[in-house]
Design a protein around this nucleic acid. Structure first.
Lengths: 129, 129
DNA sequence: TTTTAAAGGTACTTTTTAGTACCTACTGCA
DNA sequence: TGCAGTAGGTACTAAAAAGTACCTTTAAAA
């Protein structure tokens, strides 16, 4: 059995949700169940390979569920596990912080664009400013 | 001027605080001012090069301050900017989630160790490696 | 006189991560 | 008949990130 040694908790968190695609995948899944194709369309530029690979790792870490329907053509649904949902607040905060940061940089004259503010559910979320 | 396009806020957040070392550096700096050497001792295994490089990038993104004292030998202090402090809650949550996750995995029999629950830390102590 | 400590620079190499291209199976539809 | 949609797998390559080794400056201490 291989041993894992961490110096600080955040190392473990980042091992699990870090990288280029995992935070994005999780930020979509926190809204509910999604099929593979939905995720692929929701995440422009991700390849089938990277999507599947990242989903497998998240599944192995107990963050997401993979539900396979035995039918043709195949149907697979992904969702956060109960444990994965313990990340909901963090994921939301990460999204919102980024949205505000982009807004801030835009104000400063940077050429920066956010395509989907899909996350905010704007009317239900009071901005603490 | 180069253009930055994001599909979702979390992409920007991760660009700024993601990677192997930045979350760790920031989790230390959220406790207050630290000198370069303190950070180096607090983060075992980080090299001088990576430390400086990551600190520069965080500075460029407006997250941390770099205060240079004109003296020999040199003295440089790093701290979160006011803007950087808007990440405090997120950083704390990332740390705590990881600590709990490590505890959970340990209970499940995984061979996993957390050396410093850094929030009680004497994080300026020189650790032998 | 040599060494140490401080902070950091730079060229180069290695490792890790991500991307490309092409493959599977099955069924319905035009 | 042949292609689209669905959810993958796999070998190989490219790019990004991180690591190694060695360099600088200066004052004080050994």
């Amino acid at each position: 059995m291989k041993q894992a040694i961490y110096n600080i908790g955040v190392e473990d968190t980042m091992r699990i949700i870090g990288g280029k695609w995992k935070p994005i995948i999780l930020c979509h899944l926190k809204h509910g169940i999604m099929r593979t194709g939905e995720l692929r369309r929701a995440i422009p530029n991700i390849t089938q390979k990277m999507l599947t690979q990242q989903l497998r790792e998240l599944e192995d870490d107990g963050i997401i569920n993979r539900k396979v329907y035995s039918q043709i053509p195949p149907k697979v649904e992904y969702s956060l596990t109960e444990y994965g949902e313990s990340l909901n607040k963090i994921l939301e905060d990460l999204c919102v912080w980024g949205e505000k940061d982009i807004e801030r940089r835009k104000q400063k004259g940077e050429n920066i664009i956010l395509l989907n503010k899909e996350d905010v559910a704007a009317d239900s979320l009071p901005y603490a400013d």
